[in-house]
């Protein structure tokens, strides 16, 4: 016993640090994740400070300079009304980021509890699963059109429509994680220690499902951003003259031949943002996995 104790007492090189600090450190060692983080931060800052970053108001029309290619004054060129495309893209980013985040928060808020209960209480499972399937079978655009008819096209409509469309995915991931974790030894051990359902769900199941949920959210945020673009493109989301990356693409389709930059830059912005979010999500997932922290 004493022999074992002394051999096991290996000095640990790393001082015990908080979990968050370790996660951050591990993200910072992953170049791809850092790239994603930087891009996402820049996009977030641009979105927040759009009015200071944009050289022109997003709705300032200038009929003297329609469809100008990118230049020193107009970095992303101008559209058919002579509006500065860079300024519009920056404001558009604001709508995209907002819709992306809010819709994911919305879907997690509703989907996680349902998934937990469905996975934990077998009685509820068939009900929740059938509801989820129904929602999944419901076409996203029909849902969005229906909501827009009731609420009117707006940013809120886009958030709710996209959020609702993402609920089934969240429920499924949470449910399957709950089912998996419910059978784990440490949950059985917690039950044997007198833990009630609330403690099991809150302390043992939900925290262990976090990684899967982060992955799910990582896929969902860029999906939501693209969804916002789709809705705005169809006129169901943000209304013109307010800018959004989707609206810019919608405007661009008439002028693909005369002003291809009108489509290229908003499109690139969406692609880069979605890619960066995915890289960041992968890095976060790796960094949050406590099993790999031996190397930290």
């Amino acid at each position: 016993m004493t022999v074992e104790a002394s051999t096991l007492d290996i000095p640990v090189a790393v001082a015990p640090a908080g979990m968050r600090r370790r996660v951050l450190r591990r993200i910072l060692r992953n170049p791809l994740a850092v790239t994603g983080l930087v891009v996402v931060c820049v996009a977030a800052l641009l979105a927040i400070f759009a009015q200071f970053v944009a050289p022109f108001p997003y709705d300032q029309v200038n009929f003297n300079e329609p469809l100008r290619p990118p230049s020193g004054t107009h970095w992303f060129g101008t559209d058919s009304f002579g509006r500065d495309q860079f300024s519009r893209a920056v404001y558009g980013l604001r709508a995209s980021v907002l819709v992306g985040l809010l819709s994911v928060v919305f879907s997690l808020t509703i989907g996680v509890p349902f998934g937990l209960f469905a996975g934990f209480y077998g009685v509820l499972d068939p009900v929740v699963s059938r509801l989820t399937d129904t929602l999944l079978a419901f076409p996203f655009l029909v849902l969005a059109v229906g909501l827009a008819a009731i609420l009117g096209p707006s940013l809120t409509t886009a958030v709710i429509a996209i959020g609702v469309a993402q609920i089934p995915g969240v429920v499924r991931v949470t449910r399957s994680e709950t089912l998996r974790l419910r059978g784990m030894d440490f949950v059985a051990a917690a039950v044997a220690g007198g833990a009630g359902d609330a403690v099991l769900l809150r302390r043992h199941i939900l925290p262990n499902a976090t990684n899967a949920l982060i992955v799910q959210a990582t896929v969902a945020v860029p999906g939501a951003i693209i969804g916002e673009a789709v809705l705005s493109f169809l006129g169901l989301g943000v209304r013109p003259p307010t800018s959004s990356l989707g609206i810019m693409l919608a405007d661009a389709q008439t002028f693909v031949r005369d002003g291809p930059w009108m489509a290229v830059f908003p499109g690139l912005t969406i692609v880069v943002l979605a890619l960066a979010l995915n890289l960041l999500g992968d890095g976060l997932r790796d960094a949050l996995d406590p099993r790999e922290s031996r190397s930290a």
Partner: peptide
């Protein structure tokens, strides 16, 4: 029974590797 488990009757299981919650 929940009050008794862990307080009056405690269990130790076979699998120490998996019987602890990995994230706490």
């Amino acid at each position: 029974l929940r009050n008794i488990r862990g307080r009056d009757v405690a269990y130790i299981f076979q699998e120490p590797m998996t019987s602890l919650n990995p994230v706490l």
